[in-house]
């Protein structure tokens, strides 16, 4: 059997890749995809630890994470559409109206 720590390290690596995407890329859509990668890295960690503890509660949390992820994607993509209509760009650098 694969040790649980392998799953946890894989989850950490995927989460770090997602953080790198959010920090480095400037395209709002790609930033959103990186957020989805981070959410699913956390899902993997939750299920692996739940398995290590012999509990199913981690899977219920994954269920809720997926719901929040779906709501976040719907509202976020609507915001991107609205921003594109008024500014004609989805580069995070060029949407700087409220920047200090």
């Amino acid at each position: 059997m694969t040790p649980v720590s392998y799953y946890l390290v894989l989850g950490a690596a995927l989460f770090a890749i997602g953080v790198a995407g959010v920090v480095i890329r400037r395209n709002l859509i790609v930033i959103f995809m990186s957020i989805e990668v981070m959410l699913n890295a956390v899902n993997l960690t939750l299920v692996a630890l739940g398995r290590a503890l012999g509990s199913t509660d981690g899977q219920v949390m994954v269920f809720f994470v997926m719901t929040v992820g779906a709501a976040e994607a719907a509202v976020g993509l609507a915001l991107i559409l609205a921003a594109f209509r008024s500014r004609h760009t989805i580069k995070a650098d060029e949407l700087n109206l409220m920047r200090w």
Binding site: M1, L8, V9, A12, V23, R51
Partner: peptide
Amino acid sequence: AFAVAALTAELFAFFVRAPVGP
């Protein structure tokens, strides 16, 4: 990139000491 590397190292340091096998 520096922040991501630091985060990765921190998470690895935590997680490699996790319980051994399911």
